[in-house]
């Protein structure tokens, strides 16, 4: 069964939101920035970091950025602010500190 082309085009062009939440672009979950949900923000201190990668291992969202075995920062588009990274960061190091989120994700 095919949708009449006219209807499909109308739906796609009608507004920001096709009715009923129908998603017309396949695979667009990639564009959904779940970082919008965050109420606390992990702040990473590059100078204090010992690159043990515990935060990278424990992050449930894969939001710790790592290049060549070294932490390079946090992916705020997808970090939901759970604070596990800050909890797992060794107490003597404290390279990740949770702060109150004041605005939308960076």
């Amino acid at each position: 069964m095919r949708m009449p082309a006219k209807v499909y085009n109308e739906l796609a062009a009608s507004s920001e939101l096709p009715p009923a939440g129908v998603i017309l672009d396949p695979g667009n979950a990639e564009q959904y920035q779940t970082g919008d949900w965050r109420s606390e923000r992990p702040v990473w201190n590059a100078e204090a970091c010992i690159h043990c990668l515990r935060c990278w291992v424990y992050c449930p969202e894969g939001a710790v950025r790592v290049e060549n075995g070294r932490v390079t920062g946090i992916d705020y588009d997808h970090c939901k602010g759970c604070g596990i990274c800050a909890h797992e960061c060794p107490p003597k190091t404290q390279a990740i500190v949770m702060t109150r989120e004041t605005g939308r994700s960076a």
């Binding site: 069964m1 095919r2 949708m3 209807v7 499909y8 939101l17 009923a20 998603i23 017309l24």
Partner: peptide
């Protein structure tokens, strides 16, 4: 002729996705 259909293989769509604080309200207004 259905306005939207899941069985159009040339135009794959998703029906019934999650819509939270950011979109749910607008669908109810619609």
């Amino acid at each position: 002729r259905a306005a939207i259909t899941l069985l159009d293989k040339d135009r794959p769509i998703t029906m019934g996705p999650l819509a939270l604080q950011d979109y749910y309200f607008e669908f109810k207004v619609q």
